[in-house]
């Protein structure tokens, strides 16, 4: 049984500008990119800039305006973020919009939550079982798609009420999962590879935003790892794998992959990684080099692999479950490494 779908109002579209319906509404307005430089567009442009700026400064999107400004400012802000060509700004902006949506959705009516979920093609229903004290029932596949990035153990499927394919949730949790969905939808829109030629005004704004981000966040944080390899910053799982390899002990497939992808990711050259495996009784130089180069993205698909996340390493028995404080809050061995290096 489907619940009656509610129609979104203009207020809804302003509040949830990422909906498909908002996009349809915008199409009707027929806003042209060249027109953005016109003075009557100034309000919209300023609001758009504020959205991205607040995202960089405080992971928020600033105060809402009148609907006629608010609604079109969203696609303009998207364009602005694209124009920065800066992945940090894009990520941060998507997160800020998603967080704003979350705080609005927490107190939204149940009908509107259902309608928003439907916009993302979720299989969500109001809970009809009087025995289970939750308001919503969500298909577990939709649940899993949106919880993979949530690290808290309470989000693990095993800690949820799962009955007959449905995960039972309260509104707070549904809103939190929709936040993930909103974020990835916006991130997809920001991935646009074909860039239009932006009016000068937009390019200038984008430049200012990049400067702001550099100033605020720091160059290093935005760019990633320093080049020198520091063994003292290895997380416990890597230390264990590294020791085992040095002693010529056998490693599981997942173990080998984890160690190799970790070392390659922190900038160790392939030849040096290959040397590590020399003491193995089944060592085959050509094959080992081939595999390492594959992981390093120097061959084949050119994908550079990163080590599996901590949760995956736990599943496959590679995590050593140490009491090392730096492990707490790290979801990937690389996060640990990066954090330790900073100290």
């Amino acid at each position: 049984m489907q619940m009656e779908t509610v129609r979104f109002t203009q207020n809804d579209l302003a509040k949830y500008p990422f909906l498909k319906e908002t996009a349809a509404h915008m199409k009707k307005l027929n806003l042209k990119i060249e027109e953005l430089a016109n003075p009557e567009m100034e309000q919209i442009l300023n609001r758009a800039e504020e959205r991205v700026k607040s995202a960089i400064l405080s992971v928020s999107v600033g105060k809402k305006r009148e609907n006629y400004v608010e609604i079109p400012s969203f696609p303009v802000a998207i364009m602005l973020a694209i124009a920065t060509k800066n992945s940090f700004i894009k990520k941060r902006y998507a997160l800020a919009e998603a967080k704003q949506a979350f705080s609005d959705m927490r107190f939204e009516t149940r009908e509107r939550i259902m309608a928003i979920a439907l916009d993302f093609d979720w299989n969500l229903a109001p809970n009809r079982s009087s025995e289970i004290p939750f308001e919503f029932a969500l298909n577990f596949a939709d649940y899993l798609r949106n919880t993979v990035h949530l690290r808290d153990t309470e989000w693990k499927l095993v800690n949820r009420i799962l009955v007959n394919g449905k995960v039972y949730l309260n509104q707070h949790d549904v809103a939190r999962l929709l936040q993930e969905e909103v974020q990835s939808r916006i991130e997809r829109r920001l991935e646009a590879t074909e860039l239009p030629s932006f009016p000068e005004k937009i390019t200038e704004m984008a430049e200012r935003l990049i400067d702001l981000a550099k100033d605020r966040i720091g160059q290093e944080e935005m760019e990633g790892f320093p080049k020198a390899v520091s063994q003292s910053a290895f997380p416990p799982c890597i230390v264990a794998l590294h020791e085992a390899v040095s002693k010529g002990h056998h490693l599981s497939h997942v173990g080998r992959f984890t160690l190799t992808s970790f070392l390659v990711s922190i900038g160790m050259p392939s030849e040096k990684v290959a040397e590590l495996f020399k003491s193995f009784s089944d060592y085959n130089e050509r094959l080992t080099r081939y595999q390492i180069e594959h992981i390093a993205g120097e061959r084949g698909s050119r994908t550079r692999y990163t080590p599996p996340n901590c949760a995956t390493l736990q599943t496959h028995g590679v995590c050593v479950n140490s009491n090392d404080g730096s492990c707490r809050g790290a979801r990937n061995p690389l996060v640990y490494y990066k954090r330790k290096l900073k100290r």
């Binding site: 899993l144 919880t147 693990k156 499927l157 095993v158 800690n159 949760a311 995956t312 736990q314 599943t315």
Partner: peptide
């Protein structure tokens, strides 16, 4: 992997 953990009871 989450399905595997569920079946295994890992992280419960």
């Amino acid at each position: 992997k989450e399905i595997v953990d569920y079946v295994f009871g890992l992280g419960l």
